[in-house]
Structures are given as structure tokens and as C-alpha cells.
Computed example of a mutant assay.
Amino acid sequence: MNQPPLSDSTSNQPLQNTLQQNAESSTLGGGIQGTQGNNNIQIQGSENQVNNINLTLVLNEKTIEQTKNSEQPIITESGLVIESSGSWVLLQGYFFQTETVRQHQDGTLTVMIPSESSQDDATIQSLRPDRWGQSQLTTFAYRNDGFLVKVEEIEAESRRDSYIWKLTLKPANIEYGGSTFEMSYQERDQTYSADDIANLRGRRILLNDPPKQVIDAKFYRPASANNQMLETLIRGINTPIQVENCVLQPLYSVYKDRPKLFLELARLMAIFSLKAGDVVEQVLELALGPIEQASVHVRFRGRRRKKYVNVEPSIIEIEGDCPLE
């Protein structure tokens, strides 16, 4: 029996008294914005600064109960290292377990998702293009790849008392991993190349290092101008999404009692953010774990986009421990 998909769009009631009691407003990594207290998370960005994205990841009480009551055994945190997200897929802020994912010659994707509940059916149907055939850009991540897509078509086949959903996705025409016009930056005696800034952006996504710095134009001070400029570059200029905070920390508060599931889902979210945040074009390796003393070890290696014919693309490597609480 498959793990029930983590989706439920029929009820957007906030999750009460399950996460942190203080509903502190927070901004999560990769442009994922929300409030930890009610557990509503938004992903915001733009496609070539033209089409706005406003996608919502809703983790409600039923989602948590499905996770806790699944047949997946509880696995202790000690020694657990995840290098694959298995059959999980991230789509418009929801996590599903897939039957197959097929990439066609024209770049479109066919995703087969089994469903055994009316909540799953309603969630998938909500992704349909509108009556004019238009659909908004949405997040997608599977295995070692992630990007922005549009849902072109949704079909369903009934099998006994359940559905098998077939989704056709078209990737947006976006180049990831750095543009030719990326900026370098010099402050005082230190110079940051475009690759250095991409490395800092990746470290924020995976390690919360450097953490988000507040930019307040109302209280401009010459002494802080350099820090504000560097912060702006780390967040990203003309990138598909803004990178503001670590993506691992908020998921841990929800799935800390299921470390294997947490690592698999966090890995998908991280891969999407690393790609759409223009850190790398290709993820070569991403291993999460083990979790020890409320920190998770991270090992990452990825290749940036090749900008010049005679220059090999840079490799970004990041390793360290990310605090989860």
C-alpha cells in the first residue's frame, strides 16, 4: 500500500496547537514566505520578471495525521542519511508519491499519481488549467531536478475504488544556474564573484548561513550600505525566486517525529530552491543526514550554467550542519 499523498485542498483551516505556540512571522528560503504558527507557506517569484507566482503549501491537521498514521515505520535519527527522495514529487506546494514520471523529447513531463481519497482528488483537480486553457507557473521537483512548470492537461483513470491521475507538465522557458549578466561585488577589501554570491545563496538555503538580514530603506546608514547590497545580491536579482531563508528548518517542525520523511521532503524543497534560486543548473549530489542534537548534516555539490564556450562551468560545493531548532 502506498503512502497517502500529503495533500488536502478541501480544508484550509490553519493547523492549531501542533507546531510552535508562538505564531512568529517568518520568511522561508527560496522565496517561500509564510507564518510558522498557522503553517501556511507561500512561494513567490517571477518568470523573467513578467508573470507573478503565488503558490501556497498548506499543511493542515489531516496532512499531519496521514503522515503519523502511515505504515512507514519510525526510524531513529542516528545514522540516517538520505541521498534520494524516492518516489516523492513536489508540485504546487504539495507533496505526492508518484507511480511514474516520464520526460518526453519535447521536454514535457507526464506524471502519474495514484489517489485513494477525495481530498487527493480535489487537490489534483484544483491544478487544472482555467477554461481558457491557461495555468499559472508552479513549483516542481523530482529526484535531482526542480524547476517551474505549467500544468497543461490533467486526465484520470479509475482503478477499482481509486483514481490514477495523469498530469502533463510543461517546463517554463527559464535558464537556471546563473545568467551571463550576474554581478560581482566588492566591499572594502573583499571581492565577491558571481560564483561566490551563488555559494552564499546556496549556504543560506541549506545551512541558514548567512541568515537573512533585514533591509530597511527608511533607516539607511552609510555604514550598513555594503551589508544591504550584499544581502540584496544573496536574495537574488532577476532570479526566478528570491532566496531569503533556509528551507529545511520549517519542515522539521512538522515532520521531526518522522526523520526519514522529513529528509526526503526537505531534499525536494532544497533542490527546487537551489535551481530556481539560480545557485546551480544541475544538482550532482545532495545528501541530508544524519540528524544529531537538532542539527542535520548537509553535503551538496552542483554545477552552474555554462556561460562561455571556452570556460568550464563552476562547481558549487557546500558541507556543514544546519541547525533545525
Rank of each mutant, 00 (worst) to 15 (best):
P240S: 08
Q66L: 10
Q282G: 02
L6P: 05
N310M: 09
R128H: 06
T110M: 04
V311R: 12
S295P: 01
Q119N: 15
N12E: 12
V309R: 15
L288N: 04
A198M: 02
S87A: 10
N12L: 05
S25F: 09
S26W: 01
L261E: 10
R303W: 00
Y176V: 00
N39Y: 01
T180L: 01
R188V: 01
D145V: 05
S117T: 15
T108Y: 01
K307P: 05
R160S: 10
S84M: 00
I316C: 03
M229H: 06
R221S: 15
P210I: 04
L261M: 07
I197G: 08
C322M: 02
R221C: 01
A225P: 00
V243N: 05
L200D: 06
N60Q: 09
E99C: 03
A194K: 08
T18K: 09
T139E: 13
P4M: 00
R128D: 11
V279R: 11
V111S: 10
Y176A: 04
G86D: 10
N208Y: 02
Q49I: 07
L265T: 10
R299S: 14
Q97W: 00
S9H: 08
S115V: 06
P250Q: 07
A276H: 08
Q44R: 15
E155L: 12
E292H: 01
D278Y: 03
S7Y: 02
N38V: 06
S46Q: 14
Y252G: 00
N226E: 11
N60T: 06
Y163C: 03
P323C: 00
L6H: 02
N199K: 10
P14G: 07
Q125Y: 06
L137I: 14
A122G: 10
C322H: 03
T10G: 11
M112E: 14
R299D: 14
K150Q: 15
N173E: 15
A172S: 15
L137C: 13
G289Y: 03
E319P: 13
L148D: 11
E116Q: 07
Q3T: 09
P259V: 13
L91D: 07
N51W: 03
S135G: 13
D209Y: 00
D195Y: 03
S179C: 09
